[in-house]
């Protein structure tokens, strides 16, 4: 591949992205995300201490985009949602435990290794990268969870998101979730 070919690849090939979705799609995406994120936050508050403020992590916002806004995507299927968060959480905690003193390396390794493992296990779920990163950059409370981080929030949160996705996404006739479980 010569230099010209290399740079010409940066122009892109597709003339357009997918068409804009209908207003009813927008409505159901909004409703699902509202209920899903609401449920995680509500259950977090219900449990209260010691899990206060660790039940909700930023990557769940990204998961909500997929499981309520792009529900046909392979990235949004239950295997990816649950597996992606759990595997990434494990990678993130390990990176924090063993190389946490070198923050830049721990952060870079956490995200890159999480992606590699999600690929290998066919659980690619973009928010998983954030789940791995959050385990490293933390808050103090997150760091204090240790390996428990894999269970709460990284498994419980996606489970709640999944339950809401199953309930809400199957209400409208035009939607169906999931495409496949595993």
């Amino acid at each position: 591949m010569n230099l010209r070919q290399y740079f010409s690849k940066m122009r892109g090939v597709a003339q357009s992205g997918p068409p804009r979705v209908s207003l009813s799609e927008v409505f159901w995406s909004w409703t699902g995300a509202f209920c899903g994120i609401g449920a995680v936050a509500w259950i977090g508050a219900l449990i209260g201490d010691p899990l206060d403020q660790v039940m909700m992590i930023g990557s769940f916002g990204a998961s909500a985009v997929l499981v309520y806004g792009a529900i046909r995507s392979p990235l949004a299927q239950p295997r990816n949602l649950l597996g992606g968060h759990m595997i990434s959480a494990l990678v993130g905690v390990l990176c924090w435990k063993f190389i946490g003193e070198i923050p830049w390396l721990a952060q870079a390794l956490a995200v890159s290794t999480a992606i590699a493992l999600m690929h290998l296990t066919k659980t690619l779920h973009p928010p998983g990268g954030a789940t791995a990163l959050i385990a490293v950059i933390g808050s103090e409370k997150i760091h204090a969870l240790g390996f428990f981080y894999i269970l709460v929030p990284a498994t419980l949160g996606p489970l709640i998101l999944l339950l809401v996705a199953l309930l809400v996404n199957n209400i409208p006739a035009s939607r169906r979730y999931p495409e496949l479980w595993f």
Binding site: A14, P18, S24, A70, I71, A76
Partner: peptide, 14 residues
């Protein structure tokens, strides 16, 4: 793509 409701996670080129 317009005949299939919901966001399709694929470009036309793919």
């Amino acid at each position: 793509m317009r005949h299939i409701p919901g966001y399709l996670d694929i470009t036309t080129a793919d």
